[in-house]
Amino acid sequence: MNFSALEVSKEWHLQEILFCLAINPNNDQLWFGSSDSKIYQQSLSNEDSERISYGESGHSSYVTGMVIAGDTLISCGYDKKLIWWDTNSHEPIRNIAAHDKWIRRICVTPDGRLFSVGDDMQCRVWDLKSGDLIASFSDHAATTPHHFPSMLYALALSDDGSSLATGDRVGHVAIWDSHSFEKRAEIKTPDLYTWDPKQRRHSIGGIRCLSFSPDGTKMAVGGMGKVGNIDHLDGASRIEIFEIGTGERLQMIEDAKHKGLVEQLRWSPDGKFIVSAGGDHKGFIAFHETETGKQVHVVEHSGHIHGLHVNFQTETMFTAAHQRLAKWSFGQPKETAETTPTS
């Protein structure tokens, strides 16, 4: 990939805040979840076509995560629900009150199991087909050491599907066997908590994303570094890379020029690079060498990026951001679309 040639090749402007996105294996359809509680489908083969809005009886709060499994789209949201959708009819198939608090992320294993994490601090396992609850487990305290509600933001699955990781607001990561749900290791990243004990007496950070290295031995953790003024996302964006077996921290990467939260992390298939995305009022996408922590390239974006899809084969990326959806390519001409009406 020619990182330095990265640019937006297509951008859709919206009124809403976009939190997540999913793309089908054919790469011709994109779904994204929005702050208007809706899910939209955007054709990628005809990028200027009208978006399709999914059924009215869907979520009742921000849609924060989604995965695609065949013809089924599963979404989660702050309404504590998991919803299965038929991508042909655009109607919900199943609607489950899955957690007691906000659901932050979901992911799916190749063998057909769905994992979800929420602010009830539980990681839950669901049968993708039946929607049955298989297990619920946690290694995360419900309250922070300062007696405030904690949050379970992050979830990641190893490439081979054998391991799972969950990460919370106070900087605790648990690594699990994805079949037995036994805890295999843990990692501490206390700096990502950003608790301010003196000036403002609350926190703003937390572990916002996790990503296993392709060989499953390393873990990248994303969030924000130390913040002077926690009224704003004013700390350096921060990535920490750990050796899972020993818990040893291998890299601590901070970019003070690109402030805010690292919301998404993806390792390159060869494990040499890591892609990160996030932001403060604005957004960024950065590329770092995993061995050295050196920043290879960084691009800025006009909106804070919440959702990221990277396709290393086609060398395309998609981002879901504050009032923006964007397609990125490594060297193709740019075209900006005006706001297109949602159907």
Partner: peptide, 20 residues
């Protein structure tokens, strides 16, 4: 009870502070 000035992450901040 200070400090509620949630220019960033208003919702996370209010989850903490409103609980209190």
């Amino acid at each position: 009870r200070a400090w509620w000035d949630s220019h960033g992450q208003n919702f996370e901040t209010h989850q903490e502070l409103c609980a209190d």
